[in-house]
Computed example of a mutant assay.
Amino acid sequence: MGGLIKSSIARKVAMALSGLFLVFFLLQHFTINFTSIFSADTFNELSHFMGTNPVVQFALQPVLIFGVVFHFVMGFVLEIKNKNARAVKYAKYNGGANASWMSRNMIYSGLVILAFLGLHFYDFWIPEMVHKYVEFAPEDPTRYYHELLEKFVSPVRTGLYVVSFVFLALHLWHGFASSFQSVGFNNKYSVGLTKFAKAFAIVIPLGFIIISLVLHFNHNH
């Protein structure tokens, strides 16, 4: 088992599987948030369910947090291992001749996304934990939309979210497509999966950008 974990193939597969798991969560998160731009009531209902369901709170949420931490730790491990391998094996390594710019700079887009997740946790997850488990405030099923809207009052904060979603798109553009190859989907469906991954990398971050801007301008009108 130790040898398997230490192997480069195992690391890539683990990175890909954790990334695919986070993509699934991202789609679910987007679906709920997208309802906020056309129905506050629907958003409140879905958010209340997610915020009070014990399976979500005490089973899925810890798994998600573990998945996020694992993915980023594996990302740093792979980056270090790849740099060490290049330093040893290729005295005149030409990255541009072997891989795209995005694939060679995944660590940087990942760092921006990690910083964004810190902001997102500060904006939403920590206040939610304080509300429920520190202040023991009475539950209000209608509070979620208003709280969401308040986070996008500032044009600076809204801008930070928009920039973060641009980097998310760049990260997904290479990461999502390559994850299929890492787990062995090199068959007749590869082309279709790659096209789907590229479309996902554009549509979902763009959708989040639209949500951010709509909430910002809705509040200011």
Score class of each variant (00 low, 15 high):
Phe136Arg: 12
Trp173Ile: 00
Glu128Trp: 10
Phe121Ile: 15
Phe176Ile: 03
Ala169Phe: 03
Val162Pro: 02
Glu135Leu: 15
Val130Ala: 13
Leu172Val: 06
Thr142Gln: 12
Lys195Pro: 13
Phe180His: 07
Tyr144Lys: 05
Ala169Cys: 07
Phe121Arg: 01
Tyr161Ser: 02
Ala115Phe: 14
Met129Ser: 12
Asp140Thr: 11
Tyr133Gln: 10
Leu170Val: 15
Gly184Gln: 00
Gly175Lys: 03
Ser164Pro: 00
Gly192Gln: 03
Gly175Asp: 00
Phe136Tyr: 15
Phe180Met: 08
Gly175Gln: 00
Thr158His: 03
Leu172Tyr: 01
Leu193Trp: 00
Lys132Cys: 03
Tyr145Arg: 08
Gln181Cys: 01
Val134Leu: 15
Phe180Pro: 01
Asn187Gln: 11
Phe152Asp: 02
Phe121Lys: 07
Phe152Ile: 04
Leu149Ser: 10
Lys188Tyr: 05
Met129Phe: 11
Ile113Arg: 02
Pro127Trp: 08
Phe185Trp: 13
Val153Met: 10
Val130Arg: 11
Gln181Arg: 11
His171Phe: 06
Thr194Met: 09
Val134Ala: 15
Val191Asp: 11
Val191Glu: 10
Ala197Cys: 13
Val130Ser: 09
Val130Met: 14
Lys198Cys: 01
Gly118Asn: 10
Trp173Glu: 04
Leu193Ser: 05
Gly184His: 08
Phe124Gln: 11
Ser178Trp: 08
Leu114Ile: 09
Phe121Tyr: 14
Gly118Met: 08
Pro127Ile: 02
Glu128Arg: 13
Ile113Cys: 04
Asp123Trp: 04
His120Trp: 07
Val112Ala: 12
Ser154Ala: 10
Tyr189Leu: 10
Glu128Thr: 14
Val183Gln: 02
Val112Glu: 05
Val166Ser: 03
Phe165Lys: 07
Val153Cys: 02
Asp140Arg: 13
Leu170Cys: 06
Leu160Cys: 03
Glu139Tyr: 08
Gly192Cys: 04
Leu170Glu: 03
Phe180Cys: 08
Pro138Ser: 12
Ala197Phe: 10
Tyr161Lys: 04
Glu147Ile: 09
Leu149Thr: 00
Val156Pro: 01
Val163Cys: 02
Lys151Gln: 12
Glu147Arg: 03
Trp173Arg: 06
Gln181Val: 10
Phe185His: 07
Ser182Thr: 02
Asn186Met: 10
